[in-house]
Design a protein around this nucleic acid. Structure first.
Lengths: 255, 255
DNA sequence: TAGTGGTCTAGACCACGTT
DNA sequence: ACGTGGTCTAGACCACTAT
């Protein structure tokens, strides 16, 4: 006879009870962000369950984004200090006067620094080629970079630009100079003025969770920004992958 | 002596091998969306592992959003037929002429129908009160609804509107009439013209995965839309939770 | 009744990180 | 050496769905 706890009518499973208990401790602040939670063995002893059941409770919370695990160290309460990213800066002040926003915790914007790879000439992926209006496989300028906040990567971005536009410009250098890509595009007579951002949320792939340092099973935000100049010519396609737990995306617009 | 497979130098765990195998079958279409994948016991026999290990492979894929499970029926390949939601309709045609978008698969927009609850007068939650510019706890009009596509819920939305604005209007009825809330607000002299959407992605809470019918561990998109009239007065705060696997969010804007 | 997923046990060994 | 998470076994029983 296995030592099962006698199931009362419609009792939730043990791992959920344990998870709920920890969840409460996290939400009321008893377990603070960054802090270690009781280990698998500790929970096993405390609750008189097997190690697997204790572990299941922790996994459930990790899946819900409340915990992260570090091999050999423990499970830790994840902190959510969101970075506000407002794509429509020009409009926002005009419309809202700077104030008034939900989730207004932690607005102090810590600096975000970009670490760029060497730009390269590469064939355009299918979808990018279509957006740029070139034949699939056409060679385009590819710029890849990772953004860090407090030395941890929070976002990766890959830009694609048509070679005819950027040829012989500083955009082909690692350092694009003051104002970045967009300033250089403006000097080339292709100032980007029209933008579209397409946005999805999904689970991080193994590579992405590795790159962004988030646990497997964490969500990411996948953004494709298409930028066109005044004539409607697409001059940049920028594919971004963001650690969803660190960002709030803001868009302002009018009727 | 337990019957472990002898670990070669740096071999990936068995459940990951099995998961990778299934993943490949899904990605190359051998296992089509909606189709059932081999059961836990089938995988156990096929790969000579324990049931728990087979199950772990399936759970990993579920966590990555590739599978969903139905108790007593099986694990099924999830289908991704995205719904495009363009919040900035007015601008989009103007800027992009209707065409050109990434992820352009499955654009045929299946109709989305709303099922509304009876509107009610309720105290405004903290954040909502702040956005509406009223005292916390002030009673406001609360409209809750669920949106269905092909009879499955894909999004829930709760709107909050100031009582002074909507008093004695059709907005307090279940059926708001042609054009919906915004048309009524316009008639009341408060046509919403300025919008902000704040957007986060995170794991679904247990209640949300229940409501949206997504497996535990699926991501949702959490949007708060703030709408103001010409004078800048906030006339609606709309909190939406979307099944992330079903939506592509589109925003168009200018420099 | 049979097959499926969901929970659970009581162990085991491995890999990682710290002491 | 020790504590931690990560993987795994060989069973068991429960709950749900179908036949």
């Amino acid at each position: 006879m296995p030592g099962r706890t006698p199931p009362e009518h419609r009792e939730p499973p043990a791992y959920q009870r344990i998870a709920a208990e920890l969840r409460a401790l996290i939400l009321d602040g008893t377990l603070a962000p960054g802090q270690r939670v009781p280990s698998e063995t500790a929970l096993r002893d405390q609750h008189g369950v097997s190690k697997m059941t204790a572990r299941n409770a922790l996994l459930a919370l990790r899946e819900q984004g409340l915990l992260e695990s570090r091999h050999g160290k423990g499970f830790f309460v994840r902190s959510f200090k969101p970075i506000r990213r407002n794509a429509t800066k020009r409009l926002s002040r005009e419309l809202w006067g700077g104030g008034r926003s939900m989730w207004s915790v932690d607005v102090e914007n810590r600096p975000m620094v970009a670490v760029s790879e060497e730009p390269e000439e590469a064939p355009a992926p299918e979808a990018v080629a279509q957006a740029l209006g070139v034949e699939p496989g056409t060679r385009v300028c590819r710029r890849s970079r990772v953004y860090l906040v407090e030395d941890v990567p929070v976002m990766s971005a890959v830009s694609f630009l048509p070679m005819e536009v950027v040829a012989n410009s500083q955009i082909l250098q690692v350092d694009t100079g003051p104002g970045g890509i967009y300033a250089r595009l403006a000097e080339l007579g292709h100032a980007p003025t029209r933008f579209r951002e397409e946005l999805r949320a999904r689970m991080a792939s193994p590579e992405e969770s590795d790159l962004l340092g988030v646990g497997s099973g964490s969500p990411v935000i996948h953004v494709v920004r298409t930028a066109a100049d005044e004539t409607g010519r697409v001059v940049e396609v920028n594919e971004m992958v963001l650690d969803a737990s660190r960002f709030i995306m803001e868009y302002d617009f009018t009727s």
